[in-house]
Amino acid sequence: MSDREDQLVGEFPLIPKQERAQLKRDLLLKSGHELFILKGYEHTTAKEIAAHAGVATGTFYRYFSDKRQLLMSLLEDRIEMFMPPEPKWGVSDPETTLAGLLESHDKRLKEMGLQRLLPELVAKDAEFAQVLASGKRKIFTRILSGIKLANDKGLTWTDLDLNTVTWSLMTLAEHTPEKMKQCGIQTDYHEVAKVICRLIFPPEVIIKLRTCGTADEEENDI
């Protein structure tokens, strides 16, 4: 059992070993996933999850202590999927590379669907909010480390605070999926990546990275 499971999931009433029992548990997970997205966490009950799965309410409590445990089981090992993607700076075209990462991240979030529950969960579940914040701090530290390496190589702006740059980068990347809703136009991932890269690199450095090609990528491996 992972540390995260210890924190968020807790001990299950029953760990299914037989295939039939595992199928029932999987049905409950699928049912909970669908209802949480459709109705929201607060307005979904264990009884509704069981009914939607086609099983008795008592069956629900054979596998999960409550709806929170079911939700945290859905989120288990997926916390990092909610984190903004970690850019790769030591490449010949950082803008295109980052645009691809942003688009893939947005696609994963849409496929999972549960990102809509995050504001509700963070507001109501202090333990989950703490784990999510811890995950963001780890991503922040890794991104900052990469930017510092780029700075050591003379690739970044010299007059900007790197902590502020990292925070700005993460904020933009994290809210990229919301751009279409707020602006009313389709998200152009390359335009977002361009803005982020301009926070890191002066224009002449971006041109240099593009023209140097893969020959310098090993040297700039950050």
Rank of each mutant, 00 (worst) to 15 (best):
L27Q: 11
Y41G: 01
K30H: 14
F36N: 01
K88A: 09
H33N: 08
T44Q: 00
L35W: 06
E48I: 03
I207M: 08
L14K: 14
G135P: 09
S92T: 07
P202V: 10
S92V: 00
Y189I: 08
A50I: 00
K124M: 12
V131Y: 02
W89F: 02
S104A: 14
V55Q: 06
T166C: 11
I196H: 06
E218R: 13
E219S: 09
L23M: 13
Q69I: 07
C212L: 12
L38T: 09
V131I: 09
Y41K: 02
Q22R: 12
L27F: 13
A126C: 10
C197Y: 02
L102H: 05
L155T: 01
K194P: 03
P203I: 04
G100S: 04
L121E: 15
T141H: 09
L162N: 01
F82I: 10
K88W: 04
Y61A: 03
T57I: 00
F60M: 03
Q186E: 11
S31R: 10
A173W: 07
L117G: 07
E127T: 15
F82A: 10
E11N: 11
S145K: 15
T57K: 13
M170C: 03
F64D: 07
P84F: 01
E86R: 07
T176Y: 06
G90P: 00
E5R: 15
K208H: 10
L8E: 09
K208W: 14
E120G: 15
K181S: 11
E19L: 15
V131L: 07
L27N: 12
L162G: 07
L199A: 11
W167S: 11
L75H: 03
